[in-house]
Amino acid sequence: MAGASRNGNGGLGTRALLWTLPVLLLTLYVVPFAGVISWSVTQPEVGFGQYWRILSGGDMTNVFLRTLRIAVVSTAITILVGFCLSYYWVMGSRLRQTILEVCIFIPFWISVLVRAFGWLIILRDNGLANGFLMATRLISEPLGTGRNEFAVIVGMVHFMVPFSVFPMATVMRKIDRRILLAAHGLGADPATVFRKIFLPLSMPGVFAAFVMVLVFSVGFFVTPAILGGGRVVMVAEAVFVQMFQTTNWGLGAAMSVVLLVLIGAIVGLAYRLLGLRSFVG
């Protein structure tokens, strides 16, 4: 009897423990976000006015379009560069892997601020890149590579590439080399092996990196502020302005909700396009 009751208590205790995390997550994420949603339709007055303002084609629509454009372009470039880097890393000799590891890890030690300033020094009109090109007479006028959207994308890609490498490299590392050998031995040339075997098998990693980098990229704040010359206002900064400067909390909340929905939609779309379902079942 005593044993049974102890078991019963233990079971209850375990169940309580198992429920702690979901309840915690619910409290920490869902409840506040429900608050955000309610703000978005109640402040300053009840209705969908704030959403209308975001979607109606005015300045807020532009902020979203700009954010999406920058996010998609920088994510695409990041994934491309990160993919090549991961491939080079995973497939390389021991020496090459070590060198690449250093190159991938060092940026983590440098703050986003310093990295943005570094790019500014390189890209601005009187910076290193334009200076070199003008000194070698390849160009006569600065290319206007600093303090604009281009510079922001460069800075963002540079920031995100090391992050994108890990999910992709992890998946690539798990691909059985014999599968690649098998494809080769069965008559596929290296390009076909890559296209038909390696690439599809890397897709789960590409997708994970894509989601991570996309979520990163819509939330950038410091890099656009420094490299954008003040012009490249993205959603994160616009939400900040609404929350802290103009105290139009309803608009800030509505923007957060729209951003979340947009990211969800893009991720869902990518999931379908990349054919990820073939891996799940």
Partner: peptide
């Protein structure tokens, strides 16, 4: 509030 939003839109536009 209004002016700042307009200003930021002008800056970014």
């Amino acid at each position: 509030n209004k002016a700042l939003e307009r200003y930021l839109a002008m800056v970014a536009g």
